[in-house]
Design a protein around this nucleic acid. Sequence first.
DNA 1: TAGATTGTTAATCGATTAACAATC
DNA 2: TAGATTGTTAATCGATTAACAATC
Lengths: 210, 210
Amino acid sequence: MKKQKVSSAVIRRLPRYFRHLNDLLQTGTVRISSSALGKSMGLTASQIRQDLSCFGEFGQQGYGYNVEKLQGEIAEILGMNRNHNAVILGAGNLGRALIENFHFEKNGFVLSAAFDVAPSIVGTQIGGVVIRDTAQLENYLAEYPASVGVLTVPGKVAGIMAERLVACGVRGIWNFTNMELELKEDNIVIENVHFADSLLALSYMISDTE
Amino acid sequence: MKKQKVSSAVIRRLPRYFRHLNDLLQTGTVRISSSALGKSMGLTASQIRQDLSCFGEFGQQGYGYNVEKLQGEIAEILGMNRNHNAVILGAGNLGRALIENFHFEKNGFVLSAAFDVAPSIVGTQIGGVVIRDTAQLENYLAEYPASVGVLTVPGKVAGIMAERLVACGVRGIWNFTNMELELKEDNIVIENVHFADSLLALSYMISDTE
DNA sequence: TAGATTGTTAATCGATTAACAATC
DNA sequence: TAGATTGTTAATCGATTAACAATC
């Protein structure tokens, strides 16, 4: 599907396009030009056209882009229509926050299960999702494969759990632990959400002026 | 302190340097060369030296860098020694996850208070932090100023709460809501943690190969 | 001292911006 | 049709990498 090697800068902008197009749809906007979209997102019109041209021709001269169509195209590019399944490992505070408040389905994912080691919560439900025993991870994923594992476990077991997920055929790991995962396998995608890195960048930026 | 305009790419790498140097300290490593550090981080030696040269001269020819000293310098650059205070707005799942599990103090921050609107939790403590009534935000911050506000409130009040924080003198906002904040004020730093953007980037990357 | 490694300048590479012919 | 706006090619800008004199 991909025409060429797409740079990571472009990939990181795609979800923002999707989000902004969503907003436009909400407000009933039917069409938008690259320059108008750019203005609202703080990008140049050129950059938007250049970005989109990595994937196809979605606009029309003299008209611009149909918002709904473009949003659909970007959803497709992002892989939102592939019925990706996800499982969460670790139903502590953060795991629960994701289970209850994060809208997996709005992002094209089905959260099929969550796992934890604490007997007190195994078997309970959170936000409609059953918490299973981590010991059952392999059994479960053998029956119900998932493409993404969400790591919200304590850092010290992050590496082990990551390898277990990969052994079960997971293609990507959404890593919320503060550990840098180093997998033996190739071609597994790791997406880190390092809170500390984010806060420290903020710290730098507010400490800047003096 | 800053010698020049530092690019955002460099700023984003600083926390990673800090983290890796921490790991090296843990394992008792005393010195390291740019090439060894680069190898372990997946960067070139050139890039590391180039990055560090934005801030000063921290190495020694023929020797490399003293790990402890370099870590200290980067902590200083990141503003980790400035006794930044933070307050959390919204003690739902995500807010609680941050209060209980995120180590603000390891990143140079003091989490001084949390706020919520739910009468059922106002006045209680979570992980040693008192949950206060959001109505008291202005009173509290007038007495105990904070440099960063953490937004873990529902998206629909994110904008309002952000403006209230800014009016109270906050310099930066750590935004965990899925809203794009647009402040009236200039020179306020917004650091977004958009879970959806992160998952969608992962979705793209695992959907890539076919 | 000789070997190692820095900080920095120059070269290369890639990403962003500008320009414009094509065309709705 | 005339005006608007695309997709794409060329120009510019910035970031990464390479090279090397300085020196510990």
